[in-house]
Amino acid sequence: MRFVRYYQTARQRSPWSGLENEIDRLFQSSLAGFGSSRIPVDLHEDQNNVYVRAELPGVSREAITVEVVDGDLNLSAVRKTPATEGKAEETSATLSRSIQLPVDVQTDAVSAVYENGVLTVTLPKREEAKPRKVNVAVK
């Protein structure tokens, strides 16, 4: 059971305001923002590797965890927002994402690079998963 908060604002005087609010809320939740805890990812592949690119701005390298478990890639990170004049305490938010990998990968050869707020994980495909060219002689 999920509870969805009901927003009541001044805009609800217009007959369409309910719908407008719902659309706004849909966009706010689907587009990753400060409040969102889901890491947006891209998945690419070439012949030998699968590449996962995750957008993680404002996270330190030590706070990033990359795990491959049972054909799934688990990413998690803690984003710390330093204390400012407005907010006395340091706040931290945990971001996470789990994606199912499309092919079998060599779990011991996974590497990851974090640069400019983007984490790129390179997962080498297992030999069995690579496309193989078989020459068949036609008689």
Binding site: L31, A32, G33, F34, E55, L56, P57, G58, T84, E85, G86, N116, G117, V118
Partner: peptide, 22 residues
């Protein structure tokens, strides 16, 4: 981009998330 504006007594702090930008 995702952004945030915070007001202080003598300045505004604007934070913009630009992943993948050098």
């Amino acid at each position: 981009p995702v952004f945030n504006v915070r007001e202080r007594e003598d300045a505004y702090d604007l934070t913009v998330l630009l992943p993948g930008v050098a």
